[in-house]
Amino acid sequence: MIRANRRDFLKVAAFCSLCGTGAAYAKTGAAGALPVKQIADGVFAFAGVPAMMNGGNRGEICNLGFVIGEDAVAVIDSGGSVAEGRALIDAIRARTDRPIRYLINTHMHPDHIFGNGAFDAEKVTIVGHRNLRRALESRGDYYLESYRSSMGAELMQDIRIVLPTRLVAAVEELDVGKRKLTLQSWKPAHTDNDLTVFDQKTKVLFTGDLCFAEHLPTLDGSLLGWVGQLDMLRAIEASMAVPGHGPVPSPWPDALERQKRYFDVLIGDVRKAIREGVPMMEAVKTAGESERGNWQLFDDYNQRNATAAYAELEWQ
């Protein structure tokens, strides 16, 4: 009760404070459904822009989508802002009146979960990997704080960390009415809470960030865990994939190949540095460098990946 009031108050405040730009937001909010495309029967997806999250792109940098069953809708990721989440709901409502029963979060990162708050009124069950709750508990406050400068106060004031209410231990099915989705929790890879979603009817695979295409993969879990599970991932007999970042749809399993090569190069470079006693600070300046031309956002993420890889591989 108190919560709702407080949020309503914030919304009103947000609306008033926007004024000039507010009109534009309101306009896109009404007619600005997220431009999703149908990639298979009843399966829709949106392609995020290859960029860092900021106020200009409303945090719309990751791929996300939804699947319409005979009884209900399941949404895969809510986007990088409540504004994006609302635009996603508009896109769903333009296609079906069926209730949104599930919001599946493929992992903890802000570009995938900052939109969760938009689904409050939809009475959704938020579904995630068994570790997702713990991961968000230890990072949520930091995420809210650290994105304020790049996203801006206007977008941030609606964003809350909304935790999953149903956790997937290993493999589970969700039924949206004559249509079943297979949810699979993976061991630490991109993060320690990666979940994939497979539509049994059309064999479309939502990989979450276990697959990056064109956009440099980012490492926030375990590089060896990720590489070690690529064969299992590749073995999924999907008709096509919606990667966490990159073209929608992407061919499967071909979409994994470039990522695999990057990991091999990074591991090779970092292992060599560790063997030769090159300190972390020096090693990360050159590791993975030969892959530069193959990726978007290389400068934003490669040194970070090299840093995390060094800390992990040093223990071998």
């Binding site: 999250m53 570790n131 991961a135 630490p188 375990s222 006693g277 993420y301």
Partner: peptide
């Protein structure tokens, strides 16, 4: 400067960290 993107000052692989608690390694160069 703070990092960009989704990197957080938190444990990446919490189960692994606890499973190997206290394990040490010494390298001499």
């Amino acid at each position: 400067k703070a990092s960009g993107g989704c990197s957080a000052p938190a444990t990446k692989n919490a189960d692994e960290a606890m499973a190997n608690l206290g394990k040490m390694k010494l390298r001499v160069f």
